[in-house]
């Protein structure tokens, strides 16, 4: 009996110790978030001014200047990529949920799964081969195309998930009214899950707004501002990368402030999606 109780004591000790370790591990997982956020505020906040949003960067050595070119560039790129990526993603999501177990849907599901796992720099290579080479130069088109490919699987997945949640009774009610299937889907079901679909699109936008690798040799960069869709275009992430790796103090400051703004936008998008999902479909 005594031996048993000693063993029990040991088991209890091991138990408490292990549970404490799990708590510590969870803490270790979220600690970097605070470190990163603290430094973004510490280093980036000081550079926040009106001119950051309205001025284009100045040459090395001169102080002042902003990232207006990168901000407009990012907006243009996000618009372009949404124009292609959102409809394609939505259609893929609908195809996944409507075509169910057909050969097409199975193949599509594999393609979407694998598309999610393609490293974004490889997507950049693809856009380079498909758009930059034929157009003979870096362009906003190429950058938008690369980002669209990043968006497609995200939008498709979330659309499929949302459509799965719609009770089949809605489907059946529509069909019972004699409506054709496409009308049931487009007029009855889609309007009902609008919020859920918006959530997916916002998440895709949040992801795309921070993508750098696929833009390096597709959209490239420029320091003058918008020059049309067939010429190189600046973007926040690429600009941050360029400035962070430069040796100019002003530029490094711009990189920190840019990162702060970028993270703020991304967090805001995430927060909005969270609030939208909490209200449920």
């Amino acid at each position: 009996m005594i031996e048993l109780s000693i063993r029990d004591g040991r088991r209890k000790m091991v138990n408490y110790f292990s549970l404490a370790v799990l708590c510590a591990l969870a803490f270790a997982a979220i600690a970097p978030l605070f470190f990163i956020f603290a430094y973004l505020l510490l280093r980036g906040w000081g550079g926040l001014s009106w001119s950051f949003f309205t001025e284009i960067p100045r040459p090395v050595g001169e102080s002042g200047g902003g990232m207006a070119n990168a901000i407009t560039g990012s907006l243009v790129l996000m618009g372009l990529s949404s124009a292609l990526g959102v409809p394609l993603g939505l259609a893929c999501g609908m195809a996944l949920s409507e075509l169910k177990k057909t050969r097409t849907a199975k193949a599509l599901r594999i393609a979407i799964d694998l598309l999610t796992s393609v490293p974004s720099i490889v997507i950049g290579l693809f856009a380079y081969a498909l758009v930059v080479v034929p157009l003979k130069g870096y362009s906003a088109w190429a950058g938008g195309f690369a980002l669209a490919i990043v968006m497609v699987p995200i939008v498709a997945r979330s659309t499929e998930e949302i459509l799965k949640l719609v009770p089949s009774a809605v489907h059946e009610a529509g069909l019972a009214l004699g409506l054709p299937r496409w009308k049931v889907l487009m007029r009855l079901i889609l309007p009902g899950v609008r919020t859920g679909i918006t959530t997916g699109i916002l998440l895709a936008l949040a992801r795309v707004s921070g993508e750098t690798a696929p833009l390096l040799f597709t959209a490239f960069s420029n320091s003058f501002g918008f020059r049309g869709l067939s010429s190189p275009i600046a973007s926040m992430p690429v600009q941050i990368y360029t400035y962070a790796t430069s040796h100019d103090e002003t530029w490094r400051q711009l990189a920190w402030t840019g990162a702060l703004v970028l993270v703020f936008v991304v967090f805001l998008l995430n927060l909005v999606t969270r609030i939208l999902t909490r209200r449920k479909i």
């Binding site: 973004l40 941050i240 790796t245 990162a259 993270v263 991304v266 995430n270």
Partner: peptide
Amino acid sequence: AIPSVVYGLWGVFV
């Protein structure tokens, strides 16, 4: 949700 380039920036300078 934090973009990769921000991790890079933090990694280099902090």
